[in-house]
């Protein structure tokens, strides 16, 4: 069992990621993810205080497009792919949580 990851951690991230896990899956994932994180311990242990992060391999900046209207997608084509539709809109079950 990993030192870096607990069963509660896995339950918490599963909840954040909207995944449901059985107890058995929780055990399996805790072990498997723990092994990967233990392998990543070499990275976590590095002292990189003076190294800047690289979020992206390309040094591009200011990629912009002109503010000109282009084609939209046909509504029927879009809605035909939806699991549930009503009154020209996407239908979803009751929303309980607040919008952040």
């Amino acid at each position: 069992m990993s030192e870096s990851l607990t069963r509660d951690d896995v339950a918490k991230v599963a909840h954040l990621a909207r995944l449901e896990l059985t107890d058995a899956e929780l055990d399996t994932y805790t072990e498997q993810l723990g092994a990967v994180l233990d392998h990543a311990a070499d990275v976590a242990a590095l002292d990189l205080a003076d190294v800047p992060p690289t979020a992206h391999p390309l040094p591009l900046v200011n990629v912009l497009r002109d503010d000109v209207i282009g084609p939209t997608v046909d509504r029927e084509e879009v809605l035909s792919q939806a699991p549930a539709v009503e009154d020209r809109r996407f239908r979803v079950p009751a929303i309980l949580g607040e919008e952040p």
Partner: peptide
Amino acid sequence: VRYGLRVDAPTTAEM
């Protein structure tokens, strides 16, 4: 919500 699989449930979060 918009495409692909949906497994129904009473609330959107559960769905």
